[in-house]
Design a protein around this nucleic acid. Structure first.
Lengths: 193, 193
DNA sequence: GAGACGTGAGGCAACATCTGTCTCATGTTC
DNA sequence: GAACATGAGACAGATGTTGCCTCACGTCTC
């Protein structure tokens, strides 16, 4: 990602970390676990993967987010109704997070304690990734005059990120339709012209 | 089991420990995890359950062994052919252990490191439990003159325990029939008249 | 109310584990 | 041989865990 190492080693390490997080949970996974699972020594892991444990957590998180964008991009291709696309995207994100306990674990503070800090401390990087993925579509909609004047990708992404995180972790379990109504009523007006 | 506490608390704690071992693995389970899972504080767990962590591991292990005896007792009821019953019992035990990774984890040294010591240090207690469960049937067979003179429950159980542990952990994967042949040829003669 | 009781919170010292970084010996690959 | 990647292992410092303790709080019974 950041030219951290040859792609092969890097991928292997992130795969191993993902596997360990799924098996032991983030809180119980040690760097040694990941190294063993990647078939290398701890020393080699640190050499090939600067940043250590926190970076490991973040890398898995970011890759999962990236996967979500691959998925949603495919699903929303051809959707010309921008408000509908936004609503669908948010609902999909919530469903995605709910179905991937790994991500939920990385977002929920009470579950893993310290870990929330890791993702929070790097929230700029998370947002940057999201903004980069959203930007092309955002620009198109903007040029078509579909967005409220003054909105920018970074701000819009942060806004949506907070909504999504809140909806994912909130104990208020609504039906998808109720969520959509909530989104159309309270979220869309800030974004759509 | 050893009048450690009122049965309700004791059971609840052992249940919680079993659940944690299944979820995190023995090595990654802390006393706090077990306490939380049992819905009590760590202090209360220690009060209701003398012996601490090691005793917790052992209790889960012993209860699993006990469950196996319940199962095998039911399965072998009415089996009058003693050699066949012994062979069936051993094969069942091996299958049982292979299907309950919890037990295998408690026996295999390389998997859990320290834990093996726990079960090993208390091997007399494990053997005593097994001997107590086997004794009635052993006595019947002995009175019927079916056993080799000089054999005793404790020794026989230890012998079988070692065979079972070895078969369970050994990388030599045989078919059940090959195992049976091995048992009939090399194990039964020491026990049966 | 007074006392007995079980509990959770939290302190505590001893110990174990984990992290991140080192160095060194041993292969591999040119 | 030289450059390189790797594993083993040492290391200090941080963090977590264990087993025990005391204390305050609530809930019973008398």
């Amino acid at each position: 990602m950041v030219a951290n190492a040859p792609a092969t080693s890097y991928e292997r390490i992130v795969d191993a970390a993902e596997e360990c997080f799924a098996r032991f949970g983030v809180a119980k996974t040690t760097v040694e676990d990941v190294a063993l699972s990647a078939g290398m020594s701890r020393a080699t892991l640190y050499r090939n993967f600067g940043g250590g444990r926190d970076e490991l957590i973040l890398a898995v998180f970011l890759r999962d987010v990236s996967r979500f964008f691959d998925q949603i991009t495919e699903r929303l291709t051809g959707q010309l109704d921008v408000p509908a696309a936004v609503v669908d995207g948010i609902v999909d994100a919530v469903v995605f997070i709910r179905h991937e306990p790994r991500i939920a674990g990385l977002l929920a503070p009470e579950v893993v304690g310290h870990t929330q800090t890791v993702v929070n401390q790097a929230s700029e990087r998370v947002l940057r990734l999201c903004a980069d993925r959203v930007r092309p579509y955002f620009s198109l909609a903007q040029e078509a005059g579909l967005l409220r004047p003054g909105t920018e990708v970074e701000g819009a992404v942060e806004f949506l990120f907070r909504i999504i995180a809140s909806l994912s972790l909130s104990p208020l379990t609504r039906t998808d339709e109720e969520t959509r109504h909530f989104l159309r009523t309270y979220v869309l007006p800030s974004l759509i012209a």
